[in-house]
Design a protein around this nucleic acid. Structure first.
Length: 948
DNA sequence: GACGACAGCGCC
DNA sequence: AAAGGGCGCTGTCGTC
């Protein structure tokens, strides 16, 4: 216990006499955030006076409507004291789950530097030489709190490194290596060890460290109270070239599970070490994930989660001991240390910096010392960052189920540390991809794409002489063609395009690689109701569909080729059959309502139809294009395919809500079944003798919303089971309910033995539009979608949309109350919490009570999405730890938020599937503590498509 | 040629 | 003024 606790105790004594005066039963709670002690006080005035006398008390009012208990004058007084925080909740939610307890993290958080108000996305910029995980590591990036960055950059300023060469024990022979390992595994085995590697032969922007990258050196630091000779505390080991065998000496050390190792972005180092046959064990902490837990929203601050960025953030390093902070140095980026300007031909200094290859840094006589300091500094910085975040997270209460379960560091130990280990294993396994299949599919897709392009060009040719030059994947060119002359788009504009047929410009003798063409508007004012954020007419799929209508491109008339539908015969019947009949309708009935807005803009008739068909062809092109360039091609690319023919994406805990994200490639956005016209998911297969189990949660987020809001109607609907959206529709519309009550329609129907036709029509058929709306609302409401947005989507008036929204809330008022409460939390505490007690912090809006709608929507969505992420994580840990599944040979490969994919032997797949379902539906240490059941559906098959 | 902004789109 | 949360990736185009 440090003196901080002592001070707080003292404060607590100050309060006590006053709280004793609290007699009238009013329910105001005082919660000392740092200690979690609750008092009941009524005498607000004396309490606030206590605060004024210099003590640092936080008053929290919770579980009731504060205005009923405190007069405005008193409120003013309290708020003038400073350091007063309050939370109020609507009446009727006194007992609620998150509020009382989950304040604590908010209070901690409110002392932190707030992110910039803009919630702009971090671009996918990649960091230094080795940061596998995205970490903005730009040398241009100067953070507001970065007082180190005032130092001169570049050149040989070794002092500014975290350590000097004199601190570093350089290990480059067997004798030294063995003696160091002896100390690490002997004398210092109980220390916390920070480790870091430097890696060559990898392009972190493209390649996975699984199967790529070679360790050329590594560094270890295990605290200041060590001595590896002559007072040296840092270890740096050269394992390049002739020293490669030294790595083997450290194998037992890295694999020793009893030695507590801290890494910054463990995933990367672990995979690279695995390339050398070393399987690190003893993960004690990953400072990158600690930092995410500490504060999930650093994206907008100008910094991110790179070691450099975190160690230069005074708030992140706040937990470092005082004696250490004096000498605290941030990690300096490679660019600052080793970047040099290119010299142009004329001898002047260029403006582009470049960094020599890491091998050169390590071997160059001039740079080697600096390189060693840099590398050793990484371990040192990681250690200090761990120390700081450990200290800070240890002081934050972890509250789950209204009880303090420990600190947020406890949370890390219990969940995110093992989860981190699990994720790394999953990355290591990867998914097997059937590349020949993809190649086949690509041919067909390209052919279909070409047909649609020709269709479109044929039509364009009637309006523009450069039809063959137009780049159909250029938004700007399409916009120019369709909207030139209207909506603020100039009439004509020139574009630089590849000179495909050798056009020779005036005055030139030979054709140039590029030429410019002049694209003018088609001269008809097309209606436009979608615009980009920049105010220009949108040419997105949605916008083009509005113009084209539902007409589809008919390949048979365009070409003698049969349309290609890959896959099994039964699947063809379901998907192609439906589309086929749609086409026939269009042809035979001449249903003009199928044509979109372009029809009348072109005066109807043949012209109008042709315009619609052409724009539909363009839609087709863009749809096929995204499949080819986004999925089919990259999955075949050598960049991401490992030596084992498997794809090893990286799985990151880098989201605001605690969901996972996947990168290089993103396996979480593979086309879904309905839209997967080429069945890309069939390319993800199990290896020989194995199957995939794909297990899905049913309506996970909605179930959590029902739980969190304690919504009677929703809980009831889930309890009864069946089609949730149909039930929603029934509860929204009286006429639907009556029809159901009368037995005219069925809510849902499970065919029983000997039945093949339902005894009455189904709700989803009879009241299709009602159910569609209900379904849409079910998803939208949790995201905070407004009536305004719905009115746009549904093309109805704001009033009508609002009325429909109100219908949804009719029997779900608890949801509305709960959402209001989350918004209030966000407003007053600047944070909200998930089921497991993780916090998400929101930026303060300076000098104004105004809270942007975006923050409010995030506030109501985060507990839902984040809690679902918590449940998914718990489920994964259950699956991972399940002894039976392990013995049967099943491994987790991928998670797609509410879907788990495992691979294992086909012969026990049916049994394993049941184990998976059981584990997932009871993710809380084998139990389900929620107010709702967790529905899980699972299948097994040889590939991802078939198992869905 | 590299980089970043923008638009757009895939998933849950 | 805009008004659905959370991601990653690809393409184009302007700029340096």
């Amino acid at each position: 216990m440090d003196d901080r606790i002592g001070r707080l105790r003292h404060k607590h004594h100050n309060i006590k006499p006053r709280s004793a005066a609290a007699q009238d039963g009013s329910n105001i709670k005082l919660l000392d955030c740092d200690l979690g002690i609750e008092n009941h006080v009524t005498n607000i005035k004396s309490h606030s006076a206590a605060a004024q006398d210099g003590s640092n008390i936080k008053l929290i009012e919770c579980g009731l409507d504060i205005e009923n208990h405190i007069t405005p004058e008193i409120l003013d007084e309290i708020q003038n004291v400073g350091n007063v925080y309050r939370l109020s909740a609507p009446m009727g939610h006194v007992d609620s789950h998150a509020p009382v307890s989950s304040l604590v993290n908010c209070l901690e958080a409110s002392h932190m530097e707030e992110p910039d108000i803009k919630m702009n996305k971090e671009m996918s910029g990649q960091g230094g030489a080795k940061d596998h995980e995205s970490s903005k590591d730009s040398s241009k990036n100067v953070m507001p709190t970065d007082y180190f960055s005032k130092e001169p950059t570049c050149n040989s300023n070794v002092q500014k490194l975290a350590c000097t060469i004199g601190d570093v024990l350089i290990v480059d022979d067997l004798f030294a290596a063995r003696s160091v390992v002896d100390k690490l595994q002997g004398e210092y085995r109980h220390h916390v060890h920070a480790c870091d590697t430097e890696v060559a032969d990898i392009d972190v922007k493209k390649e996975s460290p699984v199967g790529h990258g070679r360790v050329i050196c590594f560094s270890i630091y295990c605290g200041p109270n060590t001595d590896f000779g002559n007072g040296k505390t840092c270890i740096w080991v050269d394992v390049m070239d002739s020293n490669a065998e030294l790595l083997g000496v450290f194998k037992s050390y890295f694999e020793d599970p009893s030695i507590k190792k801290v890494w910054h972005n463990y995933s990367f180092d672990r995979h690279v070490l695995a390339n050398h046959g070393i399987t690190p064990a003893g993960l004690y902490a990953d400072t990158m994930q600690l930092a995410r837990l500490w504060h999930s929203g650093r994206k907008g601050t100008g910094g991110s989660y790179s070691l450099e960025s975190l160690t230069s953030d005074i708030e992140a390093m706040n937990g470092v001991h005082k004696w250490d902070r004096k000498t605290l140095m941030k990690k300096t980026s490679m660019m600052d240390l080793f970047g040099t300007y290119k010299i142009k031909k004329d001898g002047t200094q260029g403006s582009i910096k470049f960094i020599p290859p890491v091998e050169e840094l390590q071997t160059s006589e001039a740079l080697r010392d600096k390189w060693i300091c840099y590398s050793a500094g990484d371990a040192l910085c990681t250690w200090r960052l761990w120390e700081s975040l450990h200290g800070q997270l240890s002081k934050r209460h972890w509250i789950f189920q209204d009880k303090v379960q420990g600190s947020m560091y406890t949370f890390y130990d219990k969940y995110w540390r093992p989860f981190g280990e699990l994720l790394v294993e999953m990355e290591g396994h990867g998914m097997l991809v059937d590349r020949p299949y993809l190649a086949e599919i690509e041919k067909v897709a390209c052919k279909e794409r070409e047909i649609s392009i020709q269709r479109f060009r044929r039509w364009v040719g009637e309006h523009c002489c450069y039809a063959n030059y137009i780049n159909v994947t250029s938004d700007a060119q399409i916009r120019q063609l369709l909207f030139g002359g209207f909506y603020g788009v100039e009439m004509c504009r020139s574009f630089k395009v590849p000179n495909i047929d050798g056009y020779i410009e005036e005055g030139k003798k030979a054709p140039l690689k590029y030429r410019s063409i002049n694209i003018c508007g088609i001269g008809k004012k097309l209606p436009c109701d979608l615009f980009t954020s920049g105010g220009l007419p949108a040419v997105s799929m949605q916008a083009l569909r509005n113009l084209a209508g539902k007409v589809s491109v008919d390949y048979l008339t365009a070409d003698d080729e049969e349309p290609f539908i890959p896959g099994e015969a039964d699947a063809i019947l379901t998907s192609a059959g439906a589309q086929g009949s749609q086409k026939l309708d269009d042809l035979h009935q001449e249903d003009l309502s199928a044509y979109g807005q372009a029809y009348s803009a072109f005066g109807g008739g043949h012209e109008g139809k042709e315009a619609c068909r052409a724009i539909a062809a363009l839609c087709e092109v863009s749809a096929i294009d995204t499949l080819i360039s986004g999925f089919i091609q990259p999955l075949q690319g050598g960049d991401i395919i490992g030596p084992d023919n498997r794809v090893h994406c990286s799985l990151n805990l880098n989201t605001e809500t605690g969901r996972l994200s996947a990168r290089r490639p993103n396996l979480q956005n593979q086309p879904a079944l309905e839209k997967d016209r080429y069945k890309i998911r069939q390319a993800f297969v199990a290896s020989s003798g194995n199957s995939l189990i794909v297990a899905d949660y049913g309506q996970l987020e909605l179930r959590l919303l029902a739980h969190l809001a304690n919504c009677k109607s929703m809980l009831e609907a889930f309890k009864i089971g069946g089609d949730f959206h149909s039930r929603t529709a029934m509860n929204m519309y009286d006429n639907v309910k009556k029809a159901v009550d009368r037995g005219d329609v069925l809510l849902e129907w499970e065919p029983k033995e000997g039945e093949d036709v339902p005894p009455a029509p189904l709700l989803k058929d009879v009241f299709a539009s009602e159910r569609r709306k209900a379904k849409m609302l079910n998803f939208s409401i949790a995201y905070g979608k407004t009536a305004r947005g719905l009115s746009k989507d549904w093309k109805v008036s704001l009033k009508d949309a609002q009325a429909t929204v109100d219908l949804w809330y009719k029997d779900r008022h608890e949801v509305r109350d709960w959402q209001e409460m989350q918004k209030m939390n966000a407003r007053s505490m600047h944070c909200v919490h998930t089921l497991l007690g993780r916090a998400r912090h929101f930026p303060r809006v300076s000098g104004s009570e105004f809270m942007s709608g975006r923050i409010e929507r995030a506030a109501i969505n985060t507990p839902v999405q984040g809690s679902a992420a918590d449940v998914a994580m718990l489920a994964m840990l259950e699956l991972w730890r399940n002894k039976e599944l392990k013995e049967l040979g099943w491994k987790l490969l991928l998670q797609v938020h509410d879907e788990m994919i495992l691979e294992g032997p086909s012969d026990n797949a049916p049994y394993a599937k049941d184990l998976v379902v059981k584990a997932m539906s009871h993710p809380f240490d084998g139990k389900n503590i929620l107010r709702v059941d967790l529905a899980v559906e699972a299948k097994y098959a040889k590939n991802w498509y078939a198992a869905k």
